[in-house]
């Protein structure tokens, strides 16, 4: 299988993630779509690492996975905090920093 096939698949998943981030109303739904986008980037990194025949790209994918976990932890706690303050699940209603 040529490496470009993996890359094109990763681009497709990334675009689906962009669609989700823009159209979802729920904040956790937006986070889920964001996970999809990050995951597609990792797939691309690993595919290009395979193309180079070198493990360098896999190291970057490794770091990206670890950073994603930190991002999810902080993002979800912000989501829960917002739900507790505003009692809504709609991201459009979160306008605390707007004046």
């Amino acid at each position: 299988m040529p490496i470009s096939a993996y890359s094109i698949l990763a681009f497709l998943i990334f675009s689906i993630g962009v669609f989700g981030v823009i159209t979802r109303r729920n904040m956790i739904g937006i986070l889920l779509s964001l996970e999809l986008m990050l995951n597609s980037v990792n797939l691309n990194l690993v595919a290009l690492s395979r193309a180079h025949g070198h493990a360098n790209g896999q190291v970057f994918a490794f770091f990206a996975i670890a950073i994603t976990v930190a991002e999810v932890a902080v993002g979800l706690s912000i989501a829960i905090l917002m739900f507790r303050i505003k009692k809504v699940v709609d991201a459009d209603k979160f306008d605390l920093m707007k004046w």
């Binding site: 159209t23 979802r24 109303r25 956790i28």
Partner: peptide, 13 residues
Amino acid sequence: HTNRGIFPGLLAG
């Protein structure tokens, strides 16, 4: 949860 703005989303994707 529902989607809003399907058309802009599709366009952006």
